[in-house]
């Protein structure tokens, strides 16, 4: 993400006590050896909350003072919060909102970032997940964006976070009341690939005409012998709206329903917000004779030995060797720290 790093020079005075970023536009300096770029956000996050130098706006990471708290102006936040309230009142309904340009390209989570910005308060502790991981580009960029524009504390630990922005995963660790999970959504309309007309899909939602959704599942079975849709698996919310759960693996679908946390979905390019209030009934669509199965790779994690978490397949050389590891890095690290180990041992191979 290039956006937030550019105007840094202008806010140099703010960062006088900053021992980590002395040369503004250059690459972030390294602190520890074993990882690269994303270390900056990773290494700083947990100490930072403890330091709390001068309160919000003056913590360890350089905070930009040229912008309003959390980048968006208050009027925009108010507009987004109104959309969020409406979305929570009508679970699964896509509420249009005046999506803003964000300093990152569409597809990088502009919707999720706007929802996060509208929800953040200075006391929040933010976690950002990208494909389950806390240390991939997208997660690091967005976390750093809010460190700089909001000065909020960040964390990698699911339990410690009050607000989690996610792309493609729901954390393995069950969420609790008081937490907010914000999803980045590329295409909010579950019917879009079957019916390109927005006027028509809105009408179909209005009249609860969801036969077409089943045509997609039918095609899956006809072609592959089973429902092959593995991510963005459509769900019915509270017995009313069919909703795209964003491209999470269908393994995560059962976690959508009866969840203690508030789940908010933001689609920036498509300018739609939708939501699941806590403890909402969410049912994955299926046929009577082809029921929904929350599938995952048939292995256990090579690092932590977990048999019930969603796994990534990692190719380890050019001769076809591979290993399966938890896609949720925080969950995996937590298990390893607790002494659990898989076939590859706790510290190898990562």
């Amino acid at each position: 993400m290039t956006g937030p790093s550019m105007p840094l020079a202008a806010v140099d005075p703010v960062a006088q006590g900053d021992h980590r970023l002395k040369e503004p536009p250059g690459p972030p300096p390294q602190q520890k050896g074993h990882r690269t770029q994303h270390d900056e956000a990773d290494g700083g996050e947990d100490q930072k909350a403890g330091e709390g130098v001068g309160g919000r706006g003056h913590s360890v990471t350089r905070v930009m003072s040229d912008y309003n708290f959390a980048y968006l102006d208050e009027q925009t936040k108010r507009m987004i919060r109104r959309a969020l309230l409406k979305a929570l009142a009508v679970p699964g309904y896509q509420v249009p909102f005046a999506s803003r340009e964000m300093p990152m390209p569409y597809g990088w989570g502009t919707g999720g970032v706007q929802v996060t910005a509208a929800c953040l308060v200075p006391e929040d502790r933010l976690k950002v997940i990208d494909q389950g991981a806390d240390d991939t580009t997208n997660a690091v960029s967005i976390r750093r964006f809010f460190e700089r524009t909001a000065g909020v504390a960040t964390t990698g630990h699911t339990e410690a976070a009050t607000l989690i922005q996610t792309r493609h995963r729901i954390p393995e660790t069950p969420l609790t009341e008081g937490q907010i999970l914000v999803y980045q959504v590329p295409i909010p309309e579950p019917l879009r690939f079957l019916e390109p007309r927005e006027t028509e899909t809105r009408k179909m939602h209005e009249l609860e005409e969801y036969g077409l959704m089943y045509v997609k599942l039918y095609e899956d079975i006809a072609r592959h012998g089973e429902i092959a849709t593995a991510y963005a698996y459509p769900v019915k919310v509270a017995g009313r709206y069919v909703m795209d759960p964003s491209p999470i693996p269908k393994f995560d679908n059962p976690k959508l329903g009866g969840c203690a946390a508030i789940q908010l979905f933001g689609a920036g390019r498509e300018a739609r917000i939708y939501a699941l209030p806590p403890w909402t009934e969410v049912v994955s669509l299926d046929f009577e004779d082809h029921p929904f199965v929350a599938s995952k790779a048939d292995h256990s994690c090579a690092l932590c030995g977990a048999g019930n978490s969603y796994l990534d397949e990692v190719i380890t050389d050019d001769r076809g060797s591979r290993m399966f590891v938890c896609s949720d890095t925080d969950f995996c690290a937590g298990r390893q720290a607790a002494g659990k180990a898989g076939s590859e041992g706790p510290k190898e191979g990562a």
Binding site: L194, G211, L212, V215, A222, R223, F287, E288, D289
Partner: peptide, 23 residues
């Protein structure tokens, strides 16, 4: 629906009126 198989085309109306058994 040109992008949907013949079976899906015929089945669409059935599913639209509530058929939920693939077989």
């Amino acid at each position: 629906r040109m992008g949907v198989s013949a079976g899906g085309n015929v089945g669409e109306r059935l599913m639209a009126v509530g058929a939920r058994n693939y077989g």
